[in-house]
Design a protein around this nucleic acid. Structure first.
Length: 482
DNA sequence: CCATCTTTTCA
DNA sequence: GAAAAGATG
């Protein structure tokens, strides 16, 4: 390794808080120069936009874990706030560094920051190198036969499969040379990332361990215990049938490439399970492709006919939805899981989103914003693409007439009501026959369970059969719009 | 006639 | 995805 007397290389970390499979960090470390790992708290109106409160909690813990990882290999993590150009220029003056590496990001706020920043830094004499790392493939790699980005998942998936394995992940650096002088760093505690509501988020630690080690443990456990049978188990919200990797992916504590390659060469695991799981990685990839080529995916209907849709936007209904007080147990359980753990099972996300959009006729953007604020795994691509998918306004969207029946969905995927009982304790003693339809339970069954409808648990805020007809009629109105 | 399973149709 | 219509027994 070369001596560290040359000027240090800045490595700017964003949503890639990991040592392994980090191309910018590896390139800097391989150079032999000293490295200054940097995290910038960007102004709310740039960078990745204001983080939701759940993700602020995660970020706090993830940054602490990442700093410790860096310290274990002889380095550290510098915390700074401000406009990235100002911060980088300041650190350059403090340390003599004129080289910066980072991993590329693909969300519109990120690219809107990084492209002009790169130019401004180069104009000032900086060497700027950016690397891939957030996705399996660059979003400019796969195009359909007419030369445009894919708008349908299945052909996208086929192209992804046909395009060969993503590049193998690279190892973490064993040592990172420290600079002769560290630049000033801010106190992470003073960023006040942790929620001010003392009770909220306290239960997050029941299930989450932010950081690269937590991500690696989760992946290993998933592959050992859960991947076999994933195809069917992933739809049962009461079971631990999903990977729970999404928040780790959202913060880049693990790369999709690492996950993809971890599912190779598993001789004892059914191929169907592996393919189904990889398709979930591909949905993330597909969403990023959509977002990259449609930067307003989170704000504007991809299908412009929906611009004229007459949403009802009843504030009382919206509030009851957020609180898990709709009177439909599977919806309420999901919304309360979200509040308690910053997470909701994928199957239930679809049911809860369908209920907001199609039963309550509330604009999908309000649901998207709520999820963005409360999910630890909120992702600008997946969240926007998935909400539009449920609304029917997005790419490869579910058809207008796909309206989830919350009772039937509950009975199909939570047959014993275990999931409902876990998150809606006031229904815990209700006979499983009525757990998804307490409003149809005979009075003695309610009495035996200590339930007074409208008192201890709400009556449905809307009749589903009525709401279904109303939604079909509303969608009919925009059917022939241009 | 009902009960159950299968297919069709819905914006 | 689910309600309605059709087929089966």
């Amino acid at each position: 390794m070369r001596a560290n007397s040359s000027s240090p290389i800045l490595v700017w970390f964003r949503k890639d808080l990991r040592l392994a499979d980090h191309h910018a960090l590896a390139a800097a470390a391989a150079d032999g120069a000293a490295v200054i790992p940097l995290y910038i708290r960007e102004p709310a109106d740039s960078g990745n936009g204001p983080l939701g409160d759940a993700q602020r909690w995660w970020l706090h813990h993830s940054l602490l874990a990442f700093r410790e990882s860096l310290q274990r290999i002889g380095s550290d993590l510098v915390f700074r706030s401000g406009d990235p150009l100002d911060v980088i220029a300041d650190i350059s003056r403090e340390t003599g560094s004129a080289t910066i590496f980072w991993n590329r990001r693909y969300d519109p706020n990120g690219t809107a920051t990084d492209a002009p920043l790169k130019k401004a830094l180069v104009d000032r004499g900086f060497t700027v190198n950016s690397f891939a790392g957030q996705l399996l493939h660059e979003p400019t790699r796969l195009f359909n036969k007419t030369g445009g980005p894919y708008r349908v998942f299945t052909p996208f998936w086929r192209a992804l499969e046909a395009s060969g394995e993503p590049p193998a992940p690279i190892d973490p650096p064993e040592r990172i040379a420290a600079p002769e002088r560290w630049p000033a760093s801010e106190d992470l505690e003073r960023w006040n990332l942790l929620p001010t509501q003392p009770n909220w988020a306290s239960s997050f630690t029941d299930i989450w361990t932010p950081g690269e080690d937590g991500a690696a443990d989760r992946l290993q456990k998933f592959i050992e215990d859960t991947l076999d049978g994933y195809k069917t188990a992933r739809d049962v919200p009461a079971d631990a049938g999903t990977s729970l990797l999404s928040p780790h992916l959202a913060f880049g504590e693990i790369s999709p490439t690492q996950i993809w390659h971890a599912t190779r060469g598993l001789k004892d695991t059914p191929v169907d399970d592996i393919v189904t799981f990889r398709k979930e990685l591909a949905w993330r990839e597909f969403s990023y492709n959509l977002l990259f080529h449609n930067p307003d995916l989170g704000r504007r209907n991809l299908d412009r006919r929906f611009d004229g849709f007459r949403w009802l936007d009843n504030d009382d209904h919206f509030e009851r939805w957020t609180k898990g007080l709709t009177g439909y147990p599977i919806v309420d359980a999901g919304m309360r899981q979200l509040w308690r753990h910053g997470y909701m099972h994928n199957r239930v996300r679809m049911i809860a989103a369908s209920f907001l959009i199609k039963d309550l006729l509330i604009d999908w953007r309000r649901g998207e914003a709520w999820f963005r604020d409360t999910l630890v795994d909120a992702d600008p691509a997946s969240n926007a693409a998935s909400w539009q998918w449920v609304a029917g306004s997005g790419a490869d969207a579910s058809p207008f007439f796909r309206i989830f029946n919350p009772v039937l969905q509950g009975e199909k995927f939570d047959p014993n009501g275990d999931y409902v009982k876990r998150f809606v304790p006031e229904l815990a003693d209700l006979d499983a026959r009525y757990i998804h339809r307490p409003f149809q339970a005979p009075q003695p069954a309610l009495d035996a369970a200590g339930i007074a409808l409208g008192m201890t648990y709400p009556a449905p805020i809307i009749d589903h059969a009525f709401a279904r007809d109303r939604a079909l009629a509303a969608f009919q109105e925009i059917r022939n719009a241009t």
